[in-house]
Amino acid sequence: MTGRIRWSSVVAAATILFLLGPFVVILGASFDTGDNYHVQFPPRGFTLAWFGQISPKYVQAAWTSLVVGLAVAVLAGVIGTAAALGIVRSRIGGKEAFQAFFRLPVQIPLVVTGAVFLQFYYYVSALTGLDLLRGLAGLILAHLFIALPYCVGSVSSVLVRMNPSLEEAAQSLGATHWSTFRRVTLPAIRPGVAAGMFYAFIVSFGDVPVAIFLAAGDAATLPVRIFQDMQFDFQPSMLAVSSLIVIVSAALILAVQRFAGLDMVLPGGRR
């Protein structure tokens, strides 16, 4: 074995470098001491000053993103679990067609989804007077549309691997359907539900193409705000915001990994 290069190891190392690169650049540049109007890497010094200069509008946008993301995660978790149970447990044929149907939203380019939802909300507004573009309901609904397939998929994949005798055992011991779900099914599929909710949150939190149609102005989410400012008015503090996002995301991944196991989160995750 000595002296021989394992090419697979080299490729693996290169891949890791490639994946980590952008994070390192952003994190590094956000500590740069210069007052540049471009990204400076490697940094020429170290300062936390840019973090102090983060504008309150970013804090508000972050709050909006968080509220929308959590709402989407919870709704997608509940609805996705119910839908997955319905699909996997149904005795009717055509399950595959159903599953393909649930993957549909993922196939549509997000810009199209955003435009369609915008048109749809205009239509609803004209018809009923209900303006879904005010407040966050419209954005949450659209994000639910793109996040639901992830939840249905992750819960289904755990559900089909679950030993069906577990639920039968509970029933033979006198458990009602609800009790069986709460005490046996849910604990068994919890990793799938957690992973699905995690995807849902990430999909919502990172979305620009849909949110840019549905959440302009004061209701802008964090990535929309960054996108708009990037175009017209670059500030080094935006790198600081980006760094914070990277750090928070990493913390979130670790938390989910502890809770659900990393294998539930990573492979076949975001498509």
Binding site: A169, Q171, S172
Partner: peptide, 14 residues
């Protein structure tokens, strides 16, 4: 099944 008051042992133990 839940109203039959039957004890069941499964092959997979479950």
């Amino acid at each position: 099944p839940r109203a039959r008051n039957i004890g069941m042992v499964f092959q997979s133990y479950a």
